[in-house]
Computed example of a mutant assay.
Amino acid sequence: MSKVALVTGGTRGIGEAISKGLKAAGYTVAATYHGNTEKAEEFKAATGIHVYKWDVSHPDECVAGIAKVEEELGPVEVLVNNAGITRDGMFHKMSFEHWREVLSTNLDSMFTMTRPVIEGMRSRGAGRVINISSINGQKGQMGQTNYSAAKAGVIGFTKALAQENAFKGITVNAICPGYINTDMVAAMPEKVLESIVSGIPVGRLGHPEEIAATVVYLASDAAAFMTGAVMTINGGQYIANG
């Protein structure tokens, strides 16, 4: 029986590539989504990947959703915390609602999704938690104080959880993608996109499959000695220390 991997925000963009990559590597994949049911059903029909709808910012929905996944597919052995939103704007004009929405989905979800699976991983003596942060959680980004704060928090969460669970055979790592060629990025105005690409030393946007390949590695037995790591995949746009 193949291992079960749960990917939040797993039907679109980077999450879609991660879900497909894990399935190709032999995992039984459950992909969550929140908004677009039509897109999720199309994804399910095209890939055969199981899809589940809930809001990762709501603790009760996460507990119920994860219980359903484990009842139908088996215990979650790989958790990929990928779901995220943006509500961009300059801080001096930002509403608390937009601050709270981003922190709830992007950072609170580290708790709401990981807490229901961590005890099972500990009891089995094995598990993988892979958190998708961002280049902007490392360097900050004008107009994204909410997003940058949340994604920086993901990095701190990763390092602390890794230390708590390493002796239980559980690894916890983070990936910080740069600008990736998803529908969201492709929809940017042409001049803005050109400006972004000009600041990337390799001269292009990243591919979702490049993030997915790193997730597949971190989920594998080959990565058993890697925990607490923060992996930057940004084409050289930002080179982090250590």
Rank of each mutant, 00 (worst) to 15 (best):
L6N: 02
V7E: 02
V7C: 07
G9I: 09
L22C: 03
L22T: 02
A24F: 11
A24H: 12
A25N: 10
G26W: 13
Y27Q: 04
T28L: 12
V29C: 05
E38L: 11
E38Q: 15
E38H: 10
F43Q: 00
K44P: 09
A46V: 09
A46I: 05
A46K: 14
G48W: 09
I49K: 00
Y52N: 00
Y52A: 03
D55I: 06
V56E: 04
E61Q: 15
C62I: 05
V63G: 01
K68T: 15
E70R: 01
E72L: 06
V78G: 00
L79N: 02
A83H: 05
G84K: 06
I85A: 05
T86M: 12
R87K: 14
D88L: 10
F91Q: 15
F96K: 13
F96T: 13
F96Q: 11
E101S: 14
V102K: 00
S104F: 08
T105H: 03
L107K: 03
F111G: 08
M113F: 02
M113N: 03
P116G: 04
P116Y: 02
P116K: 03
G120Y: 02
S123C: 10
G125I: 12
G127D: 06
V129K: 00
V129Q: 01
S133R: 05
G137N: 05
K139M: 14
G140P: 08
G140D: 02
M142R: 15
G143S: 07
Q144W: 13
Y147L: 11
A150Y: 04
A152M: 14
G153D: 06
V154N: 01
G156D: 08
L161W: 07
A162S: 06
Q163W: 09
N165F: 10
G169T: 11
N173P: 08
I175P: 01
G178F: 05
Y179Q: 07
I180S: 01
I180A: 03
N181C: 13
M184P: 08
V185I: 15
E190Y: 08
I196N: 06
I196L: 11
P201H: 09
G206V: 11
I211C: 02
A213G: 11
T214D: 02
T214V: 13
T214G: 05
A219W: 01
A223M: 08
M226W: 06
G235A: 10
G236C: 08
G236R: 10
Q237V: 11
Y238R: 07
